[in-house]
């Protein structure tokens, strides 16, 4: 159930970033959040890089959820 809750909340937050519902987040999407969150474009870019595990420039819901799980204290397997 915890996993469900995590997925649900992560999806909700993911949608805040992915306003066009593309199914992924780009750095451009992140930087647009600068108007809504108290973070600088540089900080948003750093956040993006730390979440984008494979470094392909696209942040998927899976990567986002994993990062969010870590934030909430759900250790990842590896």
């Amino acid at each position: 159930e915890m996993q469900d809750m995590l997925t649900q909340k992560a999806t909700e937050l993911f949608m805040l970033c992915d306003k066009e519902e593309k199914g992924f987040i780009t750095k451009r999407d992140m930087q647009r959040l600068g108007g809504e969150l108290p973070l600088t474009p540089d900080q948003l870019e750093a956040v993006f890089d730390s979440l984008d595990d494979d470094g392909n420039g696209y942040l998927t819901l899976e990567e986002f959820t994993e990062g969010f799980g870590g934030f909430l204290g759900f250790g990842s397997e590896d």
Partner: peptide, 29 residues
Amino acid sequence: DSKAAASGSEGVLANFFNSLLSKKPATSP
């Protein structure tokens, strides 16, 4: 519109991002 409803989530998002920033220092190439 749903903007107001999302404000709580934005707070969570900001906390989440801040925690990532405190964990990983800014890039230093």
